[in-house]
Design a protein around this nucleic acid. Structure first.
Lengths: 117, 117
DNA sequence: TTTTCATATCGTGACATCGCGATATGACAA
DNA sequence: TTGTCATATCGCGATGTCACGATATGAAAA
């Protein structure tokens, strides 16, 4: 049974802080760009030798760094930001940590902005 | 013919700055909350007497201020931020400036995050 | 073990955002 | 014109983000 005098028990009405964190993570040109690259890593990173299947595990930090032109530390912390926001998942393969998009999370976030009628 | 040595002339690949501005505008709990209220202004602002048809012109700053509990200047500048980002449109009715969601803009932004397959 | 190399974390100055009170603007009323 | 009221802009200290170089971590190679 639901607690009787709980304020705003109308679930799903308030702006979720989780969504705000995800939007903050995307509200940066470099991070948004990386997220778009990770939509089709096989095509976008064709000029670098893949360490593992990019459609499965995504792209390693070195290749993200090479394509973006940003400092290594910058790319690393950006990917941490995106992962904390729940927008990417990481997989270690040998020495390389690979990041891939979480399509479900992106889809859910898009739904917060615009619920298709 | 395309200029031969122009860097990244692959159109439509880069993350649009327009989208980044919109995401920045939404990456704040109060502003995101306001955008959600403006999805159904008729219901959300039922306790305040409407100055005009809310489904048409949206909600005036006074009512947004009352519901949010923020300072008047804060709400005003937040709405300016959202309007500059192209996420709301404004209409003056008497002394009251009303803001309503731009659903097309929100839908387009959602599409940047997740293109439905 | 020591070295190498990919990635993460730390520390930084420059700059942006936050939310406010004070004040300006500008439409309407008197 | 003067006053009133809704909204916009200004100025502020506090806090957060930016992108970097330097350094730490930690896995694998030598």
């Amino acid at each position: 049974m639901m607690p009787e005098n709980s304020p705003r028990s109308e679930a799903g009405q308030h702006a979720p802080l989780e969504a705000v964190e995800a939007l903050k993570a995307l509200a940066n040109p470099a991070r948004l760009q990386i997220m778009e690259w990770l939509r089709d890593p096989h095509t976008e990173f064709a000029e670098w030798e893949p360490i593992a299947d990019r459609d499965e595990v995504g792209v390693c930090v070195s290749h993200l760094q090479a394509k973006s032109g940003l400092a290594q530390s910058t790319v690393s912390s950006y990917m941490t930001t995106l992962e904390r926001a729940g927008l990417v998942r990481s997989t270690r393969i040998g020495k390389w940590i690979h990041y891939r998009r979480d399509e479900h999370a992106m889809s859910r976030l898009a739904g917060v902005l615009h619920t298709p009628s």
